[in-house]
Amino acid sequence: MALILGMDFFVFIAWIGTILAAIFCVIYGIYYEYIKKSNNDKDNSSKSINKNKKEVQ
């Protein structure tokens, strides 16, 4: 079987998959930090939840 960067196909998939998974983590962070800003408003900080609870009580 032909080797890719010295690895067989199935091992190469794991190798590149690991790097891509890490890149996806970074893209996820960038997406939520800079692109999907609207969600930030819904962010429930511990303080706001505690405040809500007090109000309900």
Binding site: T18, I19, A21, A22, F24, C25, V26, Y28, G29, I30, Y32, E33, N40, D43, N44, S45, S46
Partner: peptide, 19 residues
Amino acid sequence: AKSEKALRRAIPYGGIFIL
């Protein structure tokens, strides 16, 4: 975590760290 945002922001750092 202090907020959900903090957990979201931890994902890229965590991914790079484990890599």
